Simulated scan of single mutants.
Amino acid sequence: MTNPWRGDVALVINGERQIMRLTLGALASLEAELEVGSLVDLVERFESTAFSVADVLALLQAGLQGGGCALTPDELANADIAGGPMGAARAAAELLARAFVVPDPA
């Protein structure tokens, strides 16, 4: 079960539901891998839709790592993701948003 207060986002990969979460360690790895000045720069990429497929994969990989999933980057790159590229991008954007926004209690 996902917990939005913890920043959880669910994504079905290869037919299995995975829970992703951006922990501090995952965020630090993400910053280093994407060579962004700050996470604000990455958020701005997604808000302006100037993100790349590599950004999406890196975000998903960081979230999977934070959620305890052991998929390798190569396995993720070749995985069947529910919703295809748009589903992956949507989940990555939601993951990033949940890392910095308190969910609506409604």
Rank of each mutant, 00 (worst) to 15 (best):
W5C: 06
W5E: 08
G25K: 12
V53P: 04
R6A: 12
Q61K: 11
A79W: 00
G87S: 07
L71F: 07
M86N: 14
Q65C: 09
L95D: 01
M86Y: 12
L60W: 00
R17T: 14
P85S: 13
G83F: 09
W5N: 07
Q65S: 14
L11K: 01
L30Y: 01
P85C: 10
S29E: 14
T72A: 11
A106Q: 15
A97P: 04
D104G: 09
L59D: 01
R90M: 13
A32V: 14
V53A: 15
E16F: 11
V12K: 07
R21F: 03
P85F: 11
C69A: 15
A50G: 15
P105W: 02
P103Y: 05
G63I: 04
M1R: 12
A10D: 05
L30W: 03
G37C: 03
V101N: 06
E31F: 00
E94M: 12
L27R: 12
A10S: 10
S38E: 03
R45Q: 11
L24W: 11
M20A: 08
E75P: 02
E35I: 11
C69L: 08
G66N: 04
V102T: 15
A77Y: 07
V36R: 02
A54K: 13
A82P: 00
G63L: 02
G63A: 09
S52V: 11
G67Y: 00
A97Y: 07
A62P: 06
Q65W: 10
A50D: 14
V12F: 05
L64C: 05
P103T: 00
P85W: 10
N78H: 15
N78C: 12
I13E: 00
V40D: 09
P105E: 07
A88K: 05
L57F: 13
Q65I: 09
Q18D: 06
T72M: 09
R90H: 12
L27M: 15
D104N: 13
Q61T: 07
L39C: 05
E35R: 15
V9M: 04
A28V: 12
D74I: 13
W5F: 13
L57P: 02
I19N: 04
E75D: 07
L42K: 05
G63W: 03
E35P: 08
T2K: 03
I19F: 04
D8E: 08
L34K: 09
